[in-house]
């Protein structure tokens, strides 16, 4: 198992971009695919796209971002790729439902963003679990709900 204790830089940095491009053409770049919600962890285990096990132990103030270069050798590199965060957009049918929905979403401590007439809930588990919770609250017939990736979500 390879232990990573610092971020070497970003894949677009001058010192890396050209050489990473070259390595990628030779299939020598391994990707560490991480969910967006997991990026705040400073210590974790993960497996690269080529099956290598990596133990990450970063200083607490070292940010981990999409494109972070964790290993850079003449014939091998490991780069972080962040899985797009998914959101559940919930649109209530009427104002009374919107108030009720807002109460429950707050009570459940779901992470949200607001959109015109809708609320976006960050999916930190299976979409089905969120839909089941809405159903258990009797909201499923009074809202429209569908998941979408982060780039479609308003800030």
């Amino acid at each position: 198992m390879l232990l990573v204790n610092r971020v070497l830089g970003h894949r677009l940095d001058d010192g890396f971009a050209e050489q990473l491009h070259h390595l990628e053409h030779h299939g020598e770049v391994e990707w560490l695919l991480l969910p967006a919600a997991e990026l705040a962890r400073r210590r974790f285990r993960a497996v690269t796209s080529r099956g290598a096990e990596v133990a990450v132990a970063l200083p607490r103030d070292e940010p981990l971002t999409d494109g972070a270069v964790l290993l850079f050798e003449p014939n091998r590199a490991i780069v972080v790729k962040v899985d797009a965060e998914r959101w559940l957009r919930i649109t209530p049918h009427d104002l009374a439902t919107a108030l009720e929905l807002g109460y429950h979403v707050g009570n459940l401590h779901w992470r949200v963003r607001f959109a015109a007439g809708s609320i976006d809930v960050a999916l930190e588990g299976p979409e089905e679990a969120y839909l089941a919770r809405l159903a258990s609250l009797g909201l499923d017939s009074r809202v429209e709900a569908h998941a979408h990736p982060a780039d479609e979500a308003p800030c």
Partner: peptide, 21 residues
């Protein structure tokens, strides 16, 4: 495994490295 020593890592970086659970 290429394991780091906690104390050396801390001296090298000047930052906290203990695992937090």
């Amino acid at each position: 495994m290429n394991m780091i020593d906690n104390q050396r890592a801390k001296e090298a970086t000047g930052h906290a490295v203990a695992a937090r659970v």
